[in-house]
Nucleic acid binder design. Structure first.
Lengths: 224, 224
DNA sequence: CCGCTGTGTCGCAGGTGTGTCGCAGCGTCC
DNA sequence: GGACGCTGCGACACACCTGCGACACAGCGG
């Protein structure tokens, strides 16, 4: 179904929710502190974060804000009844929904599905970077209003890179995400696709504005 | 009366309109940014959206377009006298009406009632795209006034696609939504149905205007 | 200045994805 | 009971993408 990062310090609750969510078909990664959660976030790239409000160290709100500063992944906050949980503060921190503990797994799963439904459509939004407009729902790309016809692979590559502007993707990572493990050999495959993409997307492919080379590492989606 | 989502960044105006609309019997939800408004839209499912043109972050036009990409809810735009508000751009973005600020509550309420009347009229459930008219209540389709006889499957396919114009549906998604059960093998089922639909709906099935192929991904209901 | 590693560029042949056609099963309506 | 139309399926053709190798070239260090 989806990969979920569960940040919860109480080992019992954590274990219980983990098993329950697994039964509902999700892949679950866990963390027991905010710091650990943020590390996992970068490592696992989950589709959704379930986040306890009361955490040792940095609290849930702060974790939520930091998550938001890195990625658009949806966040559901867990709050114990009786916590002085401020819904407004939670939503302002960037949470998408919240669930009161003790959370019944079916309820939590329902919320998760609801949030994912909402946020995989609106993640299906429009990304605008300078002259480039990427519509992730219509799967169209246009530059200065002119539609840019891309092939499926080129489009997947652009979508992958532009999902996290500024981040460097290694060729291996791109092979895995764009080509989905179908190819193991290291030919100039990624480079070739990047070139073809640049020809269509860049004003001057020799001085790329959007798909930049990071020598020795890979490629990065341009204007940060 | 109706649930209204008010998107307005100026706290004073927002509060004032909120109270005024409440006095006129509407339930009012508010948001102070476009992003927040879009969240509220999904959460509250309002009957109508009142939307300020000048917003921090994504502006009113873009918010309006995104609202439209998600739902058919009517939108009234608020524009300050002196804004370089382009009525055409507003209407093209999908707005149903606009009101010049400072808006007198009675005026705004009258517009709201008018728009709601229109959108709950017999025109309800009718989607018009260029020459194509799809009546989702009567389940009839006509092109240039000529009725187009569709088979049940073709109709479901067209309804599914046209519910979210512009969005790309994968074959798998279409199988699940239109055929309502999973297919394991990949037959040309969806393609065939699309072809049959095109023959009836398109002027030139070879250059489809409404049901477009997105190579490598699926199909999309055209004209965006 | 030279060699080496890493990246840009080009063309081609095979492969993949989609359009098209025909057919048979089956339900429905006379 | 017969005819008709809808539906699912497979075969085939074709356009276009895709993967690949070969070579050129630039950046970097010795």
């Amino acid at each position: 179904m989806a990969t979920i990062l569960l940040i919860e310090d109480d080992a019992l609750v954590r274990r219980g929710l983990q098993l329950a969510l697994r039964r509902h078909g999700h892949a679950v990664r866990t963390a027991d502190t905010g710091e650990d959660g943020l590390r996992e976030l970068r490592a696992a790239e989950p589709d959704l974060v379930v986040l306890d409000v009361m955490l040792p160290g940095i609290d849930g709100f702060e974790v939520c804000r930091r998550v938001r500063s890195v990625t658009q992944v949806p966040v559901i906050m867990l709050t114990a009844r009786g916590d002085d949980f401020d819904v407004v503060e939670g939503l302002e921190a960037g949470a998408d929904d919240y669930v009161v503990k003790p959370a019944r797994p079916t309820v939590l799963d329902a919320r998760i599905r609801a949030v994912l439904r909402r946020s995989t459509d609106p993640t299906e939004g429009v990304r605008v970077h300078r002259d480039l407009r990427i519509d992730t729902a219509a799967l169209t790309v246009s530059r200065r209003g002119e539609p840019v016809p891309l092939t499926p692979t080129e489009l997947r590559l652009l979508l992958t890179l532009s999902r996290t502007p500024g981040r460097v993707f290694s060729r291996q990572q791109l092979l895995e995400e764009v080509w989905e493990h179908r190819y193991l050999g290291d030919s100039r495959l990624v480079d070739n696709c990047v070139q073809r993409l640049r020809v269509k997307v860049e004003a001057d492919p020799a001085a790329p504005e959007y798909v930049q080379t990071v020598r020795g590492f890979g490629y990065r989606f341009g204007p940060v």
